[in-house]
Simulated assay, not measured.
Amino acid sequence: MKKLITAAFCGLIFGLGLIVAGMANPAKVLAFLDLAGVWNPSLAFVMGGAIAVAIVPFTLLRRRSLSLLGEPMQFPTISVIDLRLVGGSLLFGIGWGMAGICPGPAIVLLGAGIAKGAGFLLAMITGMLLVDRFDQHRKTV
């Protein structure tokens, strides 16, 4: 129960941060991505601030084997840049650029009852299922 409450609290804080920063506003995100038009650089400061705040805790956490809740620390272990990573990054960027939404803000929009968030999440989940199917098919061939 402690893990569930902690996860819900962290999700709430993250969602509120997305709302306050304007990351859940697709129009603001699209204005950030529109370098040739009326560019809004404010999200660059949000992202830069988030990275600056996260550097110290992540550096300290890398030295730990267990989280504060006693769970094993899980950090990415794969460091190879391959076609799958590049392709997934391109698809993510294209989707973000077309909709002005990425997964975290999509959940915020869904919680606010905004249909665009539901549509984005449906498309994202469909893509994830298709990739899983493709991977399973590839392993059997």
Rank of each mutant, 00 (worst) to 15 (best):
A118N: 10
C102V: 03
L61A: 11
V53H: 06
R64W: 13
G117C: 09
L69K: 06
I101M: 04
A112L: 13
V108S: 03
V80S: 12
S65Q: 14
M47K: 05
L60T: 00
P57L: 08
D82F: 04
A123G: 10
P103S: 07
R84Y: 12
V108Y: 02
L68T: 14
F92I: 04
L60Q: 11
G88N: 03
L83I: 07
L90W: 10
G104K: 00
A106S: 13
G104T: 01
R62E: 15
I51G: 02
L68Y: 05
G97L: 07
A54G: 07
V46I: 08
G119M: 13
G104N: 01
L122S: 15
R63I: 01
D82A: 00
S67I: 08
Q74G: 01
V108G: 03
A112V: 01
C102A: 11
I114N: 08
F120R: 01
M47Q: 09
T59N: 07
Q74K: 15
A52E: 05
L121Q: 01
A99L: 14
L68G: 14
G48K: 06
S89P: 03
A54N: 10
G113F: 12
G49C: 04
F58P: 00
L66S: 12
S79L: 15
A115P: 08
F58I: 07
L68I: 13
G97P: 06
V46S: 01
R63S: 12
V108D: 01
A115N: 12
L121N: 02
L60R: 13
G93C: 06
R63F: 06
G100E: 04
G104C: 03
V46W: 06
G87E: 04
A52S: 10
M98I: 14
T126E: 10
L61I: 06
L109Q: 06
L68R: 08
M47L: 13
P72K: 12
L83E: 11
R64A: 10
A115R: 11
